[in-house]
Each structure stands twice: as C-alpha cells, then as structure tokens.
C-alpha cells in the first residue's frame, strides 16, 4: 500500500473505516454522515470515512480510527472457524491490505496474527488446491471467493503450472509468449527452450 502509483493500492484505500473525530469538522457533515441535518460534525462523532482520509487525520492526531467490521471479534470468530468458507471478494476485496494498514495505527498484535493465520489457511485450502482443480465450474466458484490479493497469487500459480506442464511435454511456449510478449520474458524463454527436447519436423 505504499506505492503512490499503484492503481490497486489506491482503490484499497477507498475502503471505509469507522472514524471518531476528536474536535469536529465544519461544513462536511452531509458528505461524511448521510442523512445528517447539521452542517458541522461535532467533536466525538463517529462516521464512516475512507481509509486514506482516516489515516491522514489519525496521523495528525485529529481523529482516531478503528478497524472495519470485517476485523471485529465477531468476524474473527467466524473466519477462524472456517477461513476457506468465507467469501472475501464480496465482503472485503482488499482484506489483507486494509487489515495491515489499519494495524499501522492500532498496533494490535492479535490482528496481525489473525491476518497471517487466515492467509495461511486460505492459501492451503483454496489457492494450492485450486491449482489442481480441473473443472471450470469449481474454478469459477473459487475465483469468486478469493480476495484480490489472493487472486493475483492464484493467477501467478496457475500460469506457472501451465508453463511447467508445457515444459514437461517438450512443447514450445508459444501461447504464453502471445499472451505476454515482453522483452524480458522473451529472453528468459529463450534460455528455457535451450534445455528442452527439440521437436524436429522435416521442412
């Protein structure tokens, strides 16, 4: 989440978190608190604000933020009971990024332990099992469950499995090259091909 230019990092910071103002704010109540009639937010009011704003104000000591509901005791119990059953994509697509960012301010050791435990379980149960899944239907169901961070790990794993299979069959990675013909990959592929058994066809 530290990369200024990253699109996903920016979108992850849009997740709303509970924020309690220490001193109040003038003129923005209608935006932060839908349905509010006043113009100003008084001191001590709790609102739902995007993470980027909450983090910036918390850093200045003007407000205090807490973690979203997804990391509350109730959800933690639920996730601990069966991490692989939880649909993270629908509820918290940036589950780990947001959790880590919140933790910067909360310094809650149990939260970081909870995050890494969740990831470990889900990796074992979903990502690595998913790599050997053959049915397309299972695959779709799986992909609709993974958070975006997990999805990118999963995609990377799947493409490397495909390439390894291709290598063991001795075929050339033409399709992979067509999908992502970057210069770097092209030279790496050239090296790999040198070791492959060659297919010779009469010209």
């Amino acid at each position: 989440m530290t990369d200024y230019w990253n699109l996903d990092a920016a979108l992850a910071e849009e997740t709303t978190v509970p924020l309690r103002f220490k001193f109040g704010v003038a003129g923005v109540a209608r935006v932060l608190e839908p349905g509010s009639t006043a113009n100003d937010i008084s001191a001590g009011t709790k609102v739902e604000a995007p993470l980027w704003l909450s983090a910036a104000l918390s850093r200045r000591g003007m407000a205090s933020m807490s973690a979203p509901e997804m990391y509350s005791e109730r959800y933690r119990r639920k996730i601990n009971a069966g991490a692989e059953c939880m649909n993270l994509k629908g509820r918290a697509p940036y589950f780990y990024d947001v959790g880590n960012k919140c933790n910067e301010f909360m310094q809650d050791l149990t939260l970081s332990a909870f995050l890494s435990r969740t990831y470990a379980t889900r990796y074992r149960e979903l990502v690595s099992k998913g790599l050997s899944t053959v049915s397309g239907e299972d695959m779709l169901e799986l992909q609709s469950k993974l958070s975006l961070e997990e999805l990118s790990v999963f995609e990377a794993g799947r493409s490397s499995v495909a390439r390894a299979e291709m290598w063991s069959r001795g075929a050339r990675l033409r399709t992979a090259a067509a999908a992502a013909p970057s210069r770097k990959r092209a030279s790496a592929r050239g090296d790999a091909e040198g070791r492959e058994p060659r297919q010779r066809v009469e010209g």
Binding site: F23, G24, V25, A56
Partner: peptide, 8 residues
C-alpha cells in the same frame, strides 16, 4: 482545533 481539522 476544529478549523485545523477542517483545513486538513
């Protein structure tokens, strides 16, 4: 403080 928060 309120003004400061608003400006921030």
């Amino acid at each position: 403080e309120m003004t400061a928060t608003t400006m921030c």
